[in-house]
Structure formats: C-alpha cells, structure tokens
C-alpha cells in the first residue's frame, strides 16, 4: 500500500503543486474581493446585504471544490486508463478492494487537504471582516460545495474506471446528479437540514467504483 501511495504521489505531485498554487491565488483573491467591498461600501450596508438580502460575498468559491475534485480525479485516473497501466496493478495479489480504495484514498487525501485549505481561507477572510456568527454561516453555506468537490472526484473515478461505454454514461449521469444535488440552492445555509443526506449520497459514490474496477480488470478497454 505504501508503494501505491508513493506511485500516486510521484504521478500527482506536479499537478498537486499546480493546484496548490491555484488555491493560494484564489484565497488571496477571495480576501481582496471582500476587502474591496468594505472599501467601496459602508460596512453596515454590507452586513445588511449579507444577512438580510442574502448576498453571498464568497460566491466565487462555489465551483472551486468541484473543479479541484474533477481535476484530481482526471489527472489520477486518465493516464492509468489511457495506457492500461491500472490493469497491471489490479492483478496484484493484494485484492481489488484495498487496491481501489488505496488509489481513492490518495486522491481523496490530497483533495481534502485543498478543501480544508479553502475552508480555512474562507473562515479567516470572513472572520477578518465579520463577527463569528458569519464565519459559521459561511462554513455551513460552503459545506455542500465541498461535498460537490468530493462527489466530483469520486464521480470522475467511477466514470473513468468503467470500461463499458453504456455503464460509463450511466455512471457519469449518476455522478453529475450527485454534484447537481449539492448545488441546488443559491441561498446561504440552504443545506443546513439536509447536509447529512447530501453527505450520504456522496459517500455512496466511493464503493460504487468497485464494480467498474472489476470490469476494467477483467478486460474492458
């Protein structure tokens, strides 16, 4: 398993460096954009807009986890599949379940680091300009976006591992459906009562990949 983690690290590290740089730039942008609002507008009006009109000042963050998850999934699994390398790994005597989960674990760990970074940047930015209650509100609002990022990663694995085009289309539709569920509302804290349900949908995507991996190992192209 350590060898697989090392192999994945070697494959992903340049991409992870690129993604890290992008997230650093984004968090700087997020901070500056909110600071800019406070410079051009009276703070009390911004509070009113944030709380009562429901303007989400960190709206730019919405699709960042989604893009990050999809990108990590693509760069982790596309090269394996294009060159058929994964089929070799899947025949290792470790068994297909630990092997698939080891691959997913590496990708998920990297993704979670970025998502945690995004949430920390959001909390610090909001906490700089607003009282603590707004930080809690922002994190709750961003929670489904984060879930969408995890769904995008697991969905990319589920779709790319599947060798049969018909199943692949179905898997893509299911993954897109879960991502869509996490982006249903533009209101802040709209998911407060359904976060656990949304998380359950996302978690179900993880074991779903196993069947695709089985088919891939057994000769699908």
């Amino acid at each position: 398993m350590r060898a697989i983690a090392y192999k994945e690290w070697l494959k992903l590290r340049s991409w992870l460096g690129f993604i890290l740089a992008a997230h650093l730039l984004f968090s700087a942008w997020l901070y500056l954009s909110i600071r800019h609002q406070f410079r051009i507008e009276h703070a009390e009006m911004i509070y009113y807009q944030a709380n009562h009109i429901g303007r989400i000042f960190y709206e730019d963050l919405r699709y960042v986890p989604l893009l990050t998850g999809a990108l990590i999934g693509a760069v982790q699994f596309l090269p394996e599949l294009i060159r058929g390398r994964l089929r070799l790994s899947l025949h290792l005597p470790t068994g297909i379940v630990p092997l698939v989960f080891a691959h997913l674990g590496v990708g998920l760990a990297a993704l979670l680091v970025f998502l945690a970074f995004d949430l920390a940047a959001l909390a610090i930015t909001i906490g700089t300009f607003f009282p603590a209650a707004f930080i809690a509100s922002a994190l709750l609002t961003a929670a489904p976006w984060v879930l969408a990022g995890i769904a995008a990663y697991l969905g990319a694995a589920l779709t790319l591992l599947e060798p049969d085009r018909r199943y692949q289309a179905a898997n893509l539709a299911i993954s897109a459906g879960v991502v869509w569920l996490c982006h249903r509302s533009g209101q802040y804290q709209a998911y407060d009562l359904v976060l656990i349900g949304a998380a359950a949908f996302v978690l179900l995507l993880a074991p779903a990949s196993l069947q695709a991996a089985h088919r891939f190992r057994n000769g699908g192209v």
């Binding site: 299911i174 949908f201 179900l204 995507l205 074991p207 779903a208 069947q211 089985h214």
Partner: peptide
C-alpha cells in the same frame, strides 16, 4: 465487493 458496489449504485440511482 461487487454486491456492495451494485447496492450503492442502485441506491444512488433510485434516490436520484
């Protein structure tokens, strides 16, 4: 593992 995978995909399909 195949059953688990089939079950999770079925649950997702039905729920969606």
């Amino acid at each position: 593992s195949r059953f688990l995978s089939w079950l999770s995909l079925s649950l997702l399909t039905v729920a969606l």
